[in-house]
Design a protein around this nucleic acid. Structure first.
Lengths: 383, 383
DNA sequence: ACCGGCTAGGCAAACGTATGCCGTAACGGG
DNA sequence: CCCGTTACGGCATACGTTTGCCTAGCCGGT
């Protein structure tokens, strides 16, 4: 490993010259010099320090992604989308798990900011009524002022661009599927309380039931986003007959929990009860679960692309003068004449928040119903 | 966002003083000065640039993890282990997907090296007979020479410390379970050809079968590590009766594919055929699959801890004086009169490979059989 | 009074890169 | 022959930290 100065010395040129050929500047360089530098770089196994590069750039070529838990397939596919887009553009992905803790989310954002990340993708999907949400919003604002892009994949309003799906429509569509198959009494096992996605999906479910005149046959069970809560909620359902015609899980994992509980109880799925979920994780495919496919991969890659393609706010280069007050030693240096900013003003060159005041656009991506074996037309008459 | 110089100016002290109080140096600082600096830092929302920090340190506080595919739960739990250990130590995790392509693996390692990562965890688990493996080994060696630790989680020998499980024993143990239950004719669906893990697991299976005198009843099917290959291999089994007493998948996903194919064919599992896998992903729990639990999370966190706890090889700081060799005339000897090193000697202070020649220790972690519903004692007489 | 040690804080040199601005040729046109 | 222009390459500075060394003051011991 060697630095630019070693390459320059080996090639017998100045560091600036070596830099220009190696970094593909538009400054003209003679073919001979170029060849010498290239040879020296090759010889010394030169690889530029991304750290040093980032120091003189508006930002590094790092993009961060904040997920609740990378070991949850919902988030891992998002992370995959982010990383694919990042890698393709020569960026490196930083990953942090925040376990839905807003405090942790703020911490990790701060850490990524310290590395001058080009941007951070928020898939932490926290609670909308978390008392620390304002702190997070503030942290996001400060990060953006400093030039760190932010893109949210959650519904929570972070004051930054977001890429989302319409979770009301998602739940509406899966409910519609079951209603169309002739199901009447439908149970909905909800997500964790306090999350916007939970509310939206419940609303979508209830809306479709109302439209079908089935408001009275709709039944909501408290739940969570995990297998166990789907299992437990279904046990409650089983304990209080009659069974519903169909069970919808707030996500696939919940639905699989329900499926499992039903089958363990000897209930025929989909013969007696249909089961459906949402998200279309690979798990859903494995167990043949009817669900709604979400473009999670695309959300991740789109968010990353937004960050990467976004023109960097050029750091206001201080142009030699600025003089910084007191003497600054031997240099007369007063050539440029042009003063960057009035002295005495600490935070002079302010407008670094160029990107902070672009309207926080929201991109809504579509979804798609995926029918599999766990749902079927209701043939028999109901209990 | 503000830099140290702004904080120092605001506090009316020198930059070095501000640095010392903010970075917790042992250099003595009066309480009053300390308070001033702290107040200024607070006021200006100061946060040190991790980039600048890393530039003057032996390495950054970044740790990389290279996985085949983060959207595969085998790897996501490893990544989770790495990130938890990293976050706890104040490090940030870099993640890259390499899709088992050695070329990509080399690329991404290079990118992480450019950020002066403290270390990189290799969970890419490539093919042992990949023609580019030597290139990767060489890249690892160069990275280590530069001070980037490497820890391998795969069996592939990368010339660096590794944390692994004994995959022969894993397969041996699950086979033993089935044999103990009275199964005789056992089919084994293999992993992808060319991977060491595939070979080890096959060997473990065959060894236990031989020990039981069942070598002739052992049947190996080509497969892969995914659901589809498990499904397809089982279809082949179904097409050529008699059915085996039990089917072992080279991993859980394969086993679930087998399970699914069997059930779709109307075969009672575990009544007629038992099914077992390895890895104990959450998927296995969901479908009630008997399997072998691997300490994947621990492997990740252990690897990260190894990197983090490893004493950094102190970059040979040139120590100003260092006799610098008899001034050797040639130098312009600017003001300070200090030359870093005698000119003409390119690679003076060599021994940066302190950590590269520690023995590449191998840590073998244990595993544990996890019995669930898809295996049962064989009661009826065999075909 | 002198000196040695200690405390507090400042100076400046790194780390490795990019780049604005300059100087110096070469070169061509008038 | 002179001058404007262009091609090329070097100098120096900036990015933001850490840290070795130095200095100034102070105190106590002899």
């Amino acid at each position: 490993m060697s630095s630019l100065v070693e390459v320059a010395r080996a090639a017998g040129v100045a560091v600036s010259t070596a830099s220009r050929v190696l970094s593909g500047s538009d400054h003209p360089i003679s073919a001979k010099t170029r060849a010498k530098v290239l040879a020296a770089a090759e010889e010394l196994d030169y690889s530029p320090s991304a750290l040093a590069r980032a120091m003189v750039s508006p930002h590094s070529r790092l993009v961060g992604v904040l997920v609740s838990d990378i070991d949850n397939p919902y988030f891992s596919v998002i992370a995959r989308g982010v990383d694919d887009a990042a890698s393709r553009a020569g960026y490196v992905t930083m990953l942090s798990n925040v376990d839905r803790r807003t405090g942790t989310e703020i911490d990790r954002l701060q850490a990524m900011r310290d590395y001058r990340a080009a941007g951070v993708v928020f898939a932490g999907s926290g609670y909308v009524d978390d008392p620390r949400t304002p702190d997070l919003v503030d942290a996001v604002r400060r990060a953006r002022e400093q030039g760190v892009q932010a893109v949210s994949l959650a519904v929570r309003d972070l004051g930054c661009p977001s890429v989302v799906v319409d979770n009301r429509a998602v739940a509406h569509d899966i409910t519609d599927h079951l209603v169309s198959l002739g199901h009447r009494r439908i149970a909905f096992i909800e997500g964790p309380t306090g999350m916007t996605v939970t509310r939206h999906r419940r609303e979508g479910f209830l809306a479709r039931m109302r439209e079908a005149g089935l408001a009275d046959s709709a039944q909501c069970q408290p739940g969570g986003f995990d297998y166990e809560s789907g299992h437990a909620a279904t046990l409650r359902l089983l304990a209080r007959p009659p069974l519903p015609d169909a069970v919808i899980g707030a996500n696939d994992e919940v639905a699989v929990g329900a499926l499992s509980a039903l089958r363990q109880a000897g209930v025929d799925v989909p013969g007696e009860v249909s089961v459906a979920g949402m998200d279309d994780l690979r798990l859903a495919e494995f167990v043949g679960l009817t669900t709604v496919s979400l473009p999670l991969y695309e959300m991740g890659s789109l968010a990353a692309r937004h960050i990467i393609d976004s023109p960097p706010v050029p750091r206001p280069r201080v142009t030699t003068s600025a003089d910084a007050g007191r003497s600054s030693g031997a240099g007369p240096t007063r050539r440029g004449g042009r003063r960057a900013d009035p002295p005495g003003d600490g935070r002079a060159d302010a407008p670094a928040d160029v990107s902070a005041d672009v309207p926080a656009t929201t991109t809504v991506l579509g979804h798609r119903l995926t029918v599999r074996e766990t749902t079927a037309r209701r043939t028999g008459e109901r209990a």
